[in-house]
Computed example of a mutant assay.
Amino acid sequence: MVRVPLTPEQIAAGRRLGALLRDARGEQRLDDIAGAAGISPETLRKIESGRLVTPSFFTVAALADVLAIPLGNLAAARAVDAEFGRAG
């Protein structure tokens, strides 16, 4: 199966997601949050830095749970950007 390249908007949305998660982590150790979410520290590092812009739903859901962020808040942030045509 051929993977369709991501659009600039999708890339920007993934980077915004990473920034939101990084801000929510605050001073908590990356290793601690990754472990609690059941992912590797490297995966979390890639998401936060914008190098992994399409993490799986279950990864995002686990991080949202550990960081006490309602998933709706993450979805709403994306929806607002789409509504106004912003890419970042």
Rank of each mutant, 00 (worst) to 15 (best):
M1L: 10
M1W: 12
V2N: 11
V2E: 07
R3L: 13
V4K: 09
P5L: 11
L6H: 11
L6E: 11
L6I: 09
T7V: 13
P8C: 06
P8H: 06
E9M: 05
I11R: 00
I11W: 01
I11T: 13
I11C: 03
A12H: 12
A13L: 12
A13F: 12
R15E: 13
R15H: 07
R15W: 05
R16I: 10
R16E: 14
R16H: 07
L17T: 00
G18L: 05
G18C: 09
G18Y: 03
A19N: 03
L21S: 00
L21G: 06
R22F: 00
R22H: 10
D23W: 05
A24H: 07
A24E: 02
R25V: 04
G26S: 04
G26T: 08
G26Y: 03
E27W: 04
E27C: 10
Q28L: 15
Q28H: 05
Q28M: 15
Q28V: 09
D31T: 13
D31Q: 14
D32N: 12
D32A: 14
I33P: 04
A34T: 04
A34P: 04
A34D: 05
G35Y: 01
A36E: 15
A36D: 13
A36T: 14
A37S: 07
G38P: 01
I39K: 13
S40T: 15
P41N: 05
P41S: 10
P41D: 10
P41V: 02
E42Y: 04
T43V: 06
L44Q: 09
L44I: 10
L44E: 04
L44K: 02
K46S: 13
K46E: 10
I47S: 02
I47P: 02
E48P: 04
E48W: 01
E48G: 04
S49F: 09
S49L: 13
S49I: 09
G50W: 13
G50I: 08
G50K: 04
R51P: 05
L52W: 11
T54D: 03
T54H: 09
P55D: 11
S56L: 11
S56H: 05
S56C: 07
S56G: 06
S56Q: 08
F57H: 08
F58M: 14
F58I: 15
T59M: 09
T59Y: 00
V60D: 03
V60S: 01
V60G: 01
A62K: 00
A62L: 03
L63V: 10
A64E: 03
A64F: 00
D65I: 11
D65F: 15
D65M: 13
D65V: 13
D65E: 14
V66K: 12
L67D: 02
A68P: 05
I69Y: 07
I69G: 01
I69P: 01
L71Y: 05
G72Q: 10
L74K: 07
L74E: 03
L74I: 12
A75I: 14
A75F: 06
A75T: 10
A75L: 07
A76I: 12
A76R: 15
A77F: 01
A77V: 04
A77I: 06
A77C: 09
R78N: 14
R78H: 15
R78W: 09
V80C: 05
D81Q: 07
E83M: 07
F84K: 04
F84W: 07
F84D: 06
F84P: 03
G85E: 02
R86V: 01
A87P: 08
A87E: 09
G88K: 00
G88R: 00
G88C: 05
G88A: 10
G88W: 00
